[in-house]
Amino acid sequence: MNQQVKVHGALLTVSLIYGANYSIAKEIMPTYVQPFGLIVIRAVSAVLFFGAMSLFVVKEKVESRQDWGRIILCGIFGIMLNQLSFFSGLNLTSPINASLIQTVSPVVVVLMSAYLLKERLKVFRMAGILLAGLGAMLLISGKAGNAQGNTWGDILILLNAISFGVFLVLAKPLMKKYQAITVVSRIFLVGAVGVIPFGWQDVLSPDYATFPVSIWAAIAFVIIGMTILAYLLNVWAMKTASPALVGVYIYLQPLVAIIIAVWLGADVFTWQKALYAAMIFGGVYLVSKPKKTSN
């Protein structure tokens, strides 16, 4: 199979997983497990799985101090800030609001790439940044007319989108040097150390014996699909894909999230949200529009 087909297949799978997660995770929080407790469960499970893979299968070491510094930053932005803000925000706001705001991540990717790689920002990209930012701010301000949203929840989701965008740019150089398991195992180790103090008590407090099968299935999806499979596929794809391409696939998440949330009756989609969604999608399209190549 062509390598590009594999990359797009991996990123499409990640988008489907993330899109479904908005409604599935809402079934768990906060009735059964508090947000920070679910984060700790995710992070510790990932450390155990990826750590075992790294020790017994890949057996690759990270020796450069500079690379370790970048791994620590990836752990902070890609796991700690990313997950704490995401699950806290999702616990407060609606699945549709969360999925729409997430599409700001590609804008952050372009800005960070321009800063780190010294690339010039084109006029249409600046216009895209303003358009996407305005759409996100209108959604956050509550002017979408949806009582199911929450301002603080939306702000936390925006912080999550920003931190994930930063993570994509930071992780790219690591993927050129190391295997995916090597990078992900170290990133989750750093992230787990950061999130355990916030959620350890929330892990111990639930009465797990009372959980119905559907909630255990949802937790299994969050651990296996959202955590292990999604992060592994994302990081693996970045070996050959640009951070911008990885970010572009975030566009599919709201579509999946909206279909699932409306189908489950967990949210409603209004015409105001459709308008703000169009602003966000239009903005991120302009930002991620590839450069024209001369013949």
Rank of each mutant, 00 (worst) to 15 (best):
G128Q: 01
V123T: 14
L130G: 11
I140F: 02
G133S: 06
M137Y: 07
G135W: 00
L116D: 14
I140M: 00
G142M: 03
M126H: 12
Y115G: 08
K118I: 04
G149A: 01
L130R: 11
K122E: 10
A144W: 01
R120K: 11
A114K: 00
R125E: 06
G145L: 05
L138H: 06
I157N: 00
A114P: 08
A147T: 15
I157K: 09
G145T: 08
K122I: 08
G149P: 01
A132I: 01
G142A: 00
V123D: 05
K118N: 09
N146D: 14
R120D: 09
L139D: 02
L134T: 05
L117F: 09
I140Y: 05
T151L: 11
T151R: 10
N146H: 13
D154L: 13
L121D: 00
N146G: 01
T151M: 14
Y115K: 11
G133Y: 00
L139N: 03
W152V: 14
M137Q: 13
L139H: 01
G135K: 06
G135P: 03
L131A: 12
L134G: 04
L138C: 05
I157H: 04
I140R: 10
M137C: 13
K122T: 10
M126W: 12
A144G: 13
Y115F: 14
G142F: 07
T151N: 12
L138D: 05
M137R: 02
T151A: 03
A147S: 07
L130I: 12
Y115L: 11
V123I: 15
R125G: 13
A136F: 07
L139K: 05
W152L: 09
L156D: 10
L139A: 11
L138T: 09
I129A: 11
R125T: 12
G128K: 02
A144C: 10
Q148H: 08
K118F: 03
V123S: 14
G142R: 00
R120F: 07
L131C: 06
L131I: 09
A127K: 01
S141W: 00
A136T: 06
K122A: 12
L134H: 06
T151F: 02
G133D: 04
L131H: 03
G133Q: 12
L134Q: 04
G135L: 12
I129Q: 01
I129S: 09
I157R: 03
G149Q: 00
G142I: 11
L156W: 03
E119L: 13
Y115I: 12
I129N: 06
A114V: 07
Q148T: 05
L138I: 14
G149L: 09
L139M: 02
A132K: 00
A144P: 00
